[in-house]
Amino acid sequence: MTACTGKRELNKAKKRAEIVEVATRSFFGRGYGATSMSAIADELGGSKATLWAHFSSKEDLFAAVVDNKVETFSQDVDEVLTGQVFSFPALRRACLRFLDCLLRENSVQLFRLVVSEGERFPEINEMFYERGPFKFRACVTSFFETRFSHEEAERLTLMTVSAMIGYRSDVLMRPERPTLRDREAFVDMMIGLIDWPRALPSEALPA
């Protein structure tokens, strides 16, 4: 009985992943507004009831696409932030990893989709922000809080994240992508221009 249940759950997970993959291509290729549940069901080639059994709406399906893309992004960034105590080398590594993730094709496609259709469909703006940027900013703030007050950590998060997202937007308008050396130069310049607050005394730092 357990083996049958396990196989059934595995098949269900595989079907869900297949649906998310097809939906991703549709959202990125056609846009959010032009994508329909019926079209996705037709592309899957199965019963529409199967699609609806996994996802109750297009919004629910889009959320799964965002979660899928954000998970990989988060794993890469968390690797250089989670459990780290603030230092300039650690910040530099995190910023470079963040830029690398931001400039990956999947990240760029998702960003362009949200920006282009977020005004018409504000629900996808909120969905994307809560699942991606909001969680990432909280992670960055926690990193800064290992050396600065909560208020200063929030200010530093706003400055660094905004600078890197702005850099990504600038890059997307260029005919050529920046090299690793270009990205390193930007990160070094950004860190050098920040008005760094006084760090908390060592006795106030978390153990």
Rank of each mutant, 00 (worst) to 15 (best):
A3W: 05
A3D: 11
T5K: 10
T5V: 09
G6S: 12
N11Y: 12
K14C: 08
A23T: 03
T24L: 09
F28T: 14
R30S: 14
G31F: 13
G33A: 10
M37Y: 06
I40Y: 04
A41Y: 07
G45R: 04
S47T: 11
S47K: 14
W52D: 14
A53I: 10
H54V: 07
S57P: 05
E59P: 05
L61H: 12
A64V: 12
N68P: 06
E71C: 04
T72H: 08
D78W: 05
V80A: 00
L81M: 01
G83N: 02
G83S: 01
G83A: 07
F86T: 08
P89I: 00
R97G: 11
F98K: 04
L103A: 07
L103P: 00
F111A: 06
R112S: 11
S116V: 08
G118I: 04
R120V: 14
E123L: 09
N125T: 15
N125P: 05
M127A: 15
Y129Q: 13
Y129A: 15
Y129M: 15
V140G: 05
T141M: 13
S142G: 14
F143L: 07
E145S: 09
A153G: 02
M159G: 09
M159R: 11
T160R: 01
M164P: 08
M164S: 09
Y167H: 09
R168H: 01
L172K: 00
E176L: 15
D182L: 05
D182M: 03
F186Q: 01
M189G: 14
W196D: 01
E203Q: 06
A204S: 11
L205I: 03
